[in-house]
Design a protein around this nucleic acid. Sequence first.
DNA 1: ATATCGATTATCT
DNA 2: GATAATCGATATG
Length: 211
Amino acid sequence: MIGSIHPLGRSFFARDPRLVARELLGKVLVRRGADRRAGTPLAARIVEVEAYLGVRDPAAHAAAGRTARNAVLFGPPGHAYVYFIYGNHYCLNVSCEPEGKAGGVLFRAVEPLFGHEEMARARGITLRGPQDWPKLTSGPGRLAQAFGITRKRDNGRDLTSAASGLWIGDDGCTAPDIRVTPRIGISKAQHRRLRYVLDGNPFVSKELKSG
DNA sequence: ATATCGATTATCT
DNA sequence: GATAATCGATATG
């Protein structure tokens, strides 16, 4: 049950995004509490993430230095960095590295555990069966929409506190085989292998699945 | 003030 | 596989 999951502490995130990304696989993203309408909590296992290293990583939003948009990446670790992309979609990251040093991990896909119907409602789709579950949360824009995450509401939110309503927990599951591939959708630093996926998990976004 | 583009997705063929 | 949709952040004048 969700009640038995405890949030990851700030020190977990105060490290190199590559370590954080690898260890986030298998952890659980949870949405519940006052910010959302009371009812079914949402929970999903993290199966695909990407590391963005900071000012020296050309593909990272932090590469151009600190701006109003990316300030959270330079702030204290364990906070949500939410950005808007392609006129349609929000994407969720968690800030990494000690305060003052930029870094983050992008959540690209999660596997729904609880709240499938509410996620479907948020996504504006109808579930015909378990075969439709990947459409809920397979892809960064999709998972953000399924969890009702927006920049206005969630940018800067502390993800290390269950009281914040959006947090990351450890339910004791250990990630089995992890595959490392190049990151998706970027135009710079395309050769770097900074995408981490649970090998063979059906909720991993299809692109470069075999990478 | 205006132009450019993006850490995507849905909907075609 | 190709492409339209869609808009805020950023750069430039």
